[in-house]
């Protein structure tokens, strides 16, 4: 009887492994409580403070939805295109993959800033919310983040965009779909230039930085975000920006690892003194930042 009790106790302890709790949801700091996008009227926290004169005419703002399939379920994804829809078939477009916080209202100043490169409306800029962000349906996962990026590319392709005129810009979490789209080339479009700001190296680096030991990411999360490996397959020009004081994704273990692993000769970097995770444009100066992005795109 005693042996049976011991067996039961030990057995139930092992059964705990069947719980299979994961921490992936902590990677996505999404907010889906809004009922509409407010853009310039948004009163919440913003990803960037920019002067009021970075205006976008209302007729250049196109809010729309597209559909993706995620694990057999159709999800509506919200997106904003800023620019002239008619120019998509003939001019360069920037696809902006935002970070892990809130939704597109939070990143709206980023999109406006990019739409002012050179002059307002010089390039079309497309931004979208990952599933579970803002008004996009579903719950965020690494896979449906890629699906929603691919969906945005499908929309662009349907509007006449080709690979050579697509520049993809990934900020923080957005570096994952950006790098994957260029590295794996498994999306409907293959961008011709890659810009990463404050990128992840991978989930493994995140875990190892926090644990000091060489601990596998699989002990905590299923999400991979293998940017440091994907970037090895990227053969397009690459521009990396990272705040030296980034206290969230260390420039040393994340940013420099990604930059180092890009093996093509055409790459440039900007390690920005004083900048933290979300204020690289501010510390560079908005004009200097804009000029550097413009110069990279047009070079």
């Amino acid at each position: 009887m005693k042996n049976l009790q011991i067996f039961c106790v030990i057995g139930s302890l092992f059964v705990l492994t069947a719980c299979r709790k994961r921490l992936d949801s902590f990677l996505f700091n999404n907010d889906n409580s809004i009922i509409e996008y407010k853009l310039d009227s948004y009163g919440g926290e913003l990803a960037l403070d920019i002067p009021i004169d970075y205006l976008v005419p209302n007729n250049d703002i196109h809010l729309f939805e597209y559909q993706i399939e995620d694990e057999g379920e159709d999800l509506n994804i919200s997106a904003i295109f800023v620019g002239d829809l008619n120019k998509i078939s003939s001019d360069t477009v920037i696809l902006y993959c935002h970070g892990n916080k809130d939704h597109m209202d939070h990143y709206w100043p980023r999109q406006k800033l990019l739409s002012h490169l050179g002059e307002q409306g010089r390039f079309g800029v497309l931004m979208f919310d990952y599933p579970g962000y803002g008004l996009s349906e579903g719950e965020p996962t690494e896979q449906n983040m890629y699906e929603s990026t691919n969906g945005a590319m499908k929309w662009l392709k349907n509007n006449g965009l080709s690979d050579d005129r697509l520049v993809i810009y990934g900020y923080s979490l957005g570096s994952a779909p950006a790098t994957k789209s260029v590295g794996d080339q498994s999306f409907v479009l293959s961008p011709s230039k890659l810009i990463l700001e404050a990128p992840f190296a991978s989930s493994s680096v995140m875990v190892q930085d926090a644990s000091i030991l060489n601990m596998p990411a699989s002990y905590f999360v299923n999400t991979k975000i293998e940017n440091a490996e994907q970037i090895k397959k990227c053969e397009v020009p690459f521009y990396w920006l990272h705040g030296i004081n980034d206290d969230f994704l260390s420039i040393e273990s994340h940013g420099r690892t990604v930059y180092k692993n890009h093996s093509e000769s055409w790459k440039q970097k900007n390690e920005v003194p004083g900048a933290n995770h979300s204020d690289v444009p501010t510390f560079m100066g908005l004009e200097v930042y804009s000029d550097s992005i413009l110069s990279f795109i047009t070079k």
């Binding site: 921490l23 902590f26 990677l27 892990n100 644990s211 601990m215 969230f248």
Partner: peptide, 9 residues
């Protein structure tokens, strides 16, 4: 974002 990892302890 908070990821609950822990230093080895």
């Amino acid at each position: 974002m908070v990821l609950v990892v822990g230093i080895s302890a």
